[in-house]
């Protein structure tokens, strides 16, 4: 049986080729037939997941929660030293200097990245903002989030930290960073579905954890902009899911 692999659509487009190279590396090392399919939106990927059409996934933490708790996925590994953090930014010419300067009615520019949006809304709570007193504009990419801000269509933008730091100096120079999360434990994880046998899970995990120990593996990792894989126990993943569950609480005025 060919294992179907996919990657969370929020990875930087510059590394698409790297994930195909990784697919080839993993096939050769494991001896398992693996086919990689990339989806251009979370909705498209979730539709395939719902049909049980995915065996291996580099999952956004938000999707990992559903896959582990509801679909019986298990954790293979997590990328080394790479947590999902967010940046909330306005513009240099705008009136907002701190999160607390934001008021009810604020327009948020964001992508459909679910964990970034979850953390972003949590970081707006010091201004007593929530889904009920803000409006969201959802766009397809982080450069478009910046564009919404610079064109004056939104008062604040939610960025994945890596994407914010990758914006051109020209664009970033016109934005004002208001807050940057330091949560540390919310991260993407590589998961295997219930169709992957326990022996195969163990074998794949062993290969991944040793991937940075030879030149070829290191080159593949570099092509994905990763430094290596580290163990992430099922309990580590469960803890991350519990933590995200606590953030998924909108505390409205009493």
């Amino acid at each position: 049986m060919t294992l179907q692999m996919t990657v969370s659509p929020d990875f930087p487009p510059a590394y698409i080729a790297g994930w195909y190279i990784f697919n080839t590396w993993l096939q050769r090392q494991s001896g398992l037939p693996i086919h990689l399919t990339l989806y251009d939106s979370f909705a498209a990927q979730r539709a395939v997941l719902a049909q049980g059409g995915i065996d291996l996934i580099y999952a956004n933490p938000y999707d990992a929660a559903f896959l582990v708790r509801e679909c019986g996925f298990v954790t293979l590994a997590a990328p080394c030293n790479r947590a999902d953090e967010v940046v909330l930014a306005g513009t240099q010419t705008g009136p907002v200097n701190t999160i607390e300067d934001l008021a009810a009615g604020t327009v948020i520019a964001r992508t459909d990245d679910p964990d970034v949006n979850l953390m972003g809304m949590m970081l707006l709570e010091p201004a007593a903002l929530h889904a009920g007193n803000t409006t969201a504009i959802t766009v397809d990419s982080y450069p478009l989030v910046a564009k919404q801000l610079l064109q004056g269509h939104a008062g604040i933008g939610f960025f994945l930290e890596e994407a914010f730091d990758s914006l051109s100096a020209l664009v970033r120079g016109q934005l004002r960073e208001l807050v940057r999360s330091r949560i540390s434990v919310i991260r993407h994880v590589l998961l295997a579905g219930p169709g992957v046998r326990a022996q195969q899970v163990e074998h794949l995990t062993t290969l991944l954890l040793a991937m940075d120990q030879d030149d070829r593996g290191q080159a593949v990792l570099e092509s994905m902009n990763l430094s290596g894989w580290e163990a992430h126990s099922q309990e580590d993943t469960e803890f991350m899911i519990d933590l995200m569950d606590t953030l998924d609480t909108q505390v409205l005025p009493g």
Binding site: E125, P126, L243
Partner: peptide
């Protein structure tokens, strides 16, 4: 503060507490 029970294998194994910055008005 948000406190959530850590449910493992159908039973409560402990609790996770996560605290974040509140609004001054609250």
């Amino acid at each position: 503060a948000t406190v959530i029970p850590n449910v493992r294998h159908g039973r409560i194994a402990g609790y996770t507490s996560v605290r974040r910055k509140p609004a001054r008005s609250r």
